[in-house]
C-alpha cells in the first residue's frame, strides 16, 4: 500500500472521490440558490423544502413507474412546477407589497423560511416523519479494484455525472439560447429588460422553476445513498448556501466550483477530525470568505457572467 508522510494514499483518493460526489450535490443546491438569487435577489431558504417534496414525489412515482430514472424525471418536473408556484403565488405578491419599504430585505427571507416550515410540515403530514427508502438500481457498494474496495459507488458516480450534466445543460441554456439571454438580462437589469420587451415576471418564474429542477435533481440523486425524511435535506441547504457564497452567489460557475471545493473540504474534515465539526467548519469558512473576499471566488468585478 502506498503511503506518503504516513498517510495512506488510498484513503486520500477515496476521501477526494467522496468529496467530489457530495460536493456535486452541494453544487446543485448552490446552483439552485444562485438561480433564484439572480432572478429575484432573494436567498431561497425554502429550496431544501422544495427539493424534499420533489424527491417524495419522485419516490411515490417510482411505485407506479417501476423505474428510478423515470421517477427522477418526475421529480425534476415536480421541482420545476413547485419553484414556479412559490415565485408566482408567494414571492411576487410579497415583493410588490414591500417594494421600497424597510422590510424589503427581510420580509422575503422570512417568507422563504415560512415556506420551508410549511413544506416540511406538509411532507410530514403526508409521508410521516419516519425514514423511507428511495432506491436506485445502481449499487451503493463501492467499486472494487483487484482486492481493494473503495468507498465510491456507482450511485456516487451517477451523482457526479448527473450534476455535471445539469451544470452543462444550464451553461448551454444560459449562454446560447434566447431564454438564457432573457434570464441573464432580467437578472442584471430588470427595468431595462422590460423596456426591451422582455416579460420579466415570467422570466423570473422560469428562473425559480430552473432552480426547483436543480434542487430536485440533488434530492433525487442523493437520497438513494441515505434516507428520505421531511427534513433530510436541511443540512444540504446550509452546505448549498456556503457553496454558493464561496462561488460568489451570482455566478453559476462559482456555484459549481464552490460546491466541489466544499465537498472535498467536508470529506477531509469528516475523515480526519469528525462529523460534528463539519458545520462549524462551514460557518468558519463562510465568515472567512465573506470577510476576506465578499464577492466570492468567482466574483471579481466584471466577473458576473454566467
Amino acid at each position: 500500500m502506498l503511503h506518503i508522510w504516513g498517510i495512506e494514499m488510498k484513503t486520500i483518493l477515496e476521501t477526494l472521490l467522496i468529496g467530489v460526489s457530495s460536493g456535486s450535490i452541494y453544487s446543485l443546491m448552490a446552483l439552485a440558490l444562485v438561480l433564484v438569487w439572480r432572478s429575484t435577489r432573494v436567498v431561497n431558504f425554502a429550496q431544501a423544502g422544495q427539493a424534499i417534496i420533489s424527491t417524495y414525489i419522485g419516490y411515490e412515482s417510482m411505485k407506479h413507474l417501476h423505474s428510478y430514472w423515470y421517477s427522477v424525471l418526475v421529480a425534476i418536473v415536480a421541482g420545476a412546477i413547485l419553484g414556479a408556484a412559490v415565485e408566482a403565488f408567494v414571492m411576487r405578491p410579497l415583493a410588490k407589497r414591500v417594494r421600497g419599504s424597510a422590510a424589503a430585505d427581510i420580509a422575503p427571507v422570512i417568507a422563504t423560511l415560512g415556506i420551508l416550515g410549511l413544506i416540511r410540515g406538509v411532507a410530514g403530514l403526508i409521508w410521516g416523519n419516519t425514514f423511507v427508502q428511495y432506491t436506485s438500481p445502481l449499487s451503493g457498494k463501492g467499486y472494487t479494484f483487484g482486492s481493494t474496495t473503495i468507498q465510491f459507488s456507482p450511485q456516487n458516480a451517477a451523482i457526479v455525472i448527473g450534476a455535471a450534466l445539469v451544470m452543462a445543460a444550464f451553461a448551454i441554456i444560459f449562454n446560447f439560447t434566447k431564454l438564457g439571454l432573457a434570464l441573464r438580462a432580467s437578472s442584471f437589469q430588470p427595468e431595462i429588460s422590460r423596456l426591451a420587451g422582455i416579460r420579466v415576471d415570467r422570466i423570473r418564474v422560469i428562473g425559480w422553476a430552473c432552480a426547483g429542477a436543480a434542487g430536485a435533481v440533488a434530492g433525487a440523486l442523493v437520497t438513494p445513498t441515505a434516507y428520505l425524511s421531511p427534513n433530510s435535506l436541511d443540512l444540504l441547504l446550509v452546505s448549498g448556501f456556503v457553496a454558493a457564497v464561496i462561488g460568489g452567489l451570482d455566478s453559476l460557475v462559482g456555484a459549481g466550483i464552490g460546491g466541489v471545493v466544499l465537498g472535498i473540504g467536508f470529506a477531509f474534515i469528516l475523515q480526519y477530525i469528525g462529523a460534528s465539526v463539519t458545520f462549524l467548519a462551514a460557518f468558519i469558512i463562510l465568515i472567512f470568505v465573506l470577510l476576506v473576499k465578499p464577492a466570492g471566488i468567482m466574483g471579481k468585478s466584471g466577473g458576473r457572467s454566467a
Binding site: A182, R184, F188, L195, I198
Partner: peptide, 25 residues
C-alpha cells in the same frame, strides 16, 4: 418603446446581446 435616461444598456452583456434582447420575443 422607451429609451430610458442615462445610456440604458445592460453593461454585463455584449453589444450583440444587448441588441438581440429587443428581438428575442
Amino acid at each position: 418603446v422607451h429609451v430610458a435616461e442615462g445610456k440604458s444598456v445592460i453593461p454585463e452583456l455584449t453589444v450583440e446581446e444587448n441588441l438581440d434582447l429587443g428581438g428575442i420575443w
